[in-house]
Amino acid sequence: MTLLTGAYFYPAGRSESLPVSIQLHADAQFSIIDNEQNLIATTTIKDVVVNDKLGSIPREIVLPDIGLLMIDANPAVNTWLTQSATQSKIAKLESNTTLILASSILVPAVLYLFFKFGIPSAAITFAEYVPQNMVEIASRHTLVALDKSVLDASELPVETQDKYQDHWAHISQQLNLESSDFNIQFRQSKTMGANAFALPNGTIVITDELVELLEHNTDLLTAILLHEIGHVTHKHSMRLIAETMATSLAIDYFFGDLGALIEAFAGLSNTIVQNQFSQKLEWEADNFALSKIPALGLEPDSFALAMEKLAATMPEESKLQHLIQSHPLMRERIENARKAL
């Protein structure tokens, strides 16, 4: 007969506590005995709930309607409790040295692959399945919101606008694109300055400021337009939404519920990961534009020149900056464009 000492018994429903010993009998029976040798209860291991082993925390044994037994997790106690039917295998895994070492390598490796390849390819699938009418609504609402905030009506003369529209209708024909897939609009924007952006339904907005900056050079404007068309045909907006959402969820899932500074770290990683996605999409759009320029008969260095003019309006960039911005470094984009010549 074995005696396990150093346990505490907590009777059900009251905060009393009692130092006790556990006496083990044959047939999985056991008795709880207090320090004055009074018998508190006798039961079998089959009639109690034994909480899973976890590290070296004390073992908890629930006696339904009677109370709770807590005892330090020494080897004798652990051996006794292996008879319980309610034990899972997880504690074994958690103390398996090989698995711990393997996990230390596999966890970062799998997370890296997940962020690098898993999320982007899932995002491409997601982008394919977004219903067209949702894309339409999203784009319209966004344009309305922008028109009410940072965009004003274009001050370019109507003839100038028409001239560009005709030219670009011709370009989209040459690219075998439906002209209804794209809707080019001019706007003025002091806030955005020289800029162009695409909405997922094919609306492409070009600011008066950009037209001014590129000195009404049709080839340069077309090069920028091709970049935006690249965003639209590759469904970049939807991919970015999916990627942003999946990354935020994943990072919250793994790093959530922590202190403020640690959350700042998680937020920072989130920003960096998302910027990597968004920069990748910019490269795709750049390369789309570069691949189309020769066939369309534009000046070969149109895209590089346009980028150079834009870069001249921006403050100089440092190497670390690519971590904190959504677009690749202008310097590298220009290099890439020059290399394509």
Partner: peptide, 17 residues
């Protein structure tokens, strides 16, 4: 009074489970 607290669910067995 530490040992005199009554559980709110005293009708049932114990807190755990």
């Amino acid at each position: 009074g530490i040992a005199g607290v009554i559980g709110q669910y005293s009708q049932s067995s114990s807190a755990i489970g």
